[in-house]
Simulated scan of single mutants.
Amino acid sequence: MKGIDPAERLLKSLGVTEPHEIELEDIAFDQGAEIRYCDLSGCEADILGYRDRAIISIDRNRGLRRRRFSIAHELGHWHYHRGKKLQCRVDEYQPKHKQLAERKANGYAASLLMPHYLLKPRARDHQKLTFKTIEQFSSEFRTSLPATAIRLVEADIWPCMLICHTRQGRKWFAQAPMFHQRWFPQAELDPESSAFDAVFGQSEGDAHPRIIGADAWFDRAEAQRYELFEQVKCIGDDEALVLLTIKDDRMMEDEPERFGHRW
């Protein structure tokens, strides 16, 4: 099993071959942790460990999929950070500038809930990624829509980028490695994007992807040459997920020379 991460190695050692077999209470017990559901104030989850035993407290007032992510996140801390005092915050996306401990726990949670050895073969059966596909995976793996979308985008199967926007601007974004890093999304929404109407309460998003100019999302001169597939999904009163998919493969190539024939 060399080359796979600890969460996937654990799942394989337990004989997990289907998404419905990822029972977190049983996995926690195997790892010496007891799950307790209670009323928590100021946090969604907490872990208290001593030697090889731990108690993970989960806010019982959260939804099932949020509770599952919280359990998996705390199991990540149990794997990586035993004996360390941490101020834990459970967020399904942690920007790269956030503390390493939280990002590592999130990575463990994503692998535990949506292991690549189960997710990628299923994902490759889909020619393109849409929110309908994401919702199907969310249901099968019992994970939230944002967490599922991030995992599928970062699986690097399709040339996609996922952006979370609020009325205050871009909250975070994730992208497939094949989506060249020179494409950095603008902080503010362009009125041409259907995300603008979704965030400001004028629509619930798109049933299907639509075509939009890349310059609505990227402040680069070359963006004027390209179009993207855009699909928007509301996930709150003033929050939306935006799925961008490359339409022209040239967007995935290395940066063109300013004075060369490709510019």
Rank of each mutant, 00 (worst) to 15 (best):
G3P: 03
D5T: 12
R9H: 09
K12W: 04
V16T: 08
V16Y: 10
P19D: 08
H20F: 10
E21V: 00
L24K: 06
L24S: 07
D30I: 02
D30G: 00
E34D: 12
E34P: 00
I35K: 09
L40C: 03
S41Y: 11
S41C: 00
G42W: 07
D46K: 07
G49P: 03
D52I: 02
D52M: 06
R53D: 08
A54F: 02
I55T: 08
I55G: 00
I55S: 02
R60Y: 12
R62L: 15
G63P: 05
R66H: 10
R68A: 04
S70M: 03
I71N: 07
E74M: 00
L75C: 02
H79C: 07
Y80D: 04
K85A: 07
K85R: 10
Q87A: 14
Q87D: 11
C88P: 00
V90F: 01
V90E: 13
Q94V: 11
K96H: 09
Q99H: 13
L100P: 00
L100N: 08
E102L: 05
R103E: 02
Y108N: 04
Y108F: 15
A109Y: 01
A110L: 13
A110N: 06
A110R: 15
S111Q: 12
L113H: 06
M114K: 02
M114I: 13
H116D: 14
H116Y: 10
Y117G: 04
L118G: 01
L119N: 01
L119E: 06
R122W: 04
R124E: 12
D125E: 12
H126T: 05
H126W: 10
H126M: 06
T130S: 14
K132A: 14
T133Y: 00
T133M: 08
E135F: 07
E135L: 10
E135S: 11
Q136E: 15
F137D: 04
S139C: 10
F141W: 06
F141D: 03
S144G: 15
S144V: 04
P146T: 12
I150Q: 15
E154M: 10
D156P: 07
D156N: 15
I157P: 00
L162K: 08
L162I: 11
I163S: 03
I163N: 05
I163C: 13
C164K: 12
H165Y: 15
T166Y: 03
W172I: 01
W172S: 01
W172V: 05
A176E: 05
A176G: 07
M178N: 06
M178T: 12
H180E: 15
F184M: 08
P185V: 12
P185N: 12
A187Q: 13
A195H: 06
F200Y: 15
G201Y: 05
G201W: 02
S203G: 03
H208A: 10
R210Q: 10
I211A: 07
I212V: 14
A214N: 04
W217H: 14
D219T: 02
E222L: 07
A223V: 09
E227H: 10
K233H: 11
C234I: 08
C234N: 05
C234R: 14
C234Y: 00
D237Y: 13
E239I: 09
L241T: 02
V242R: 11
L244C: 07
T245R: 15
D249K: 15
P256F: 12
E257K: 14
E257P: 00
H261T: 05
W263T: 14
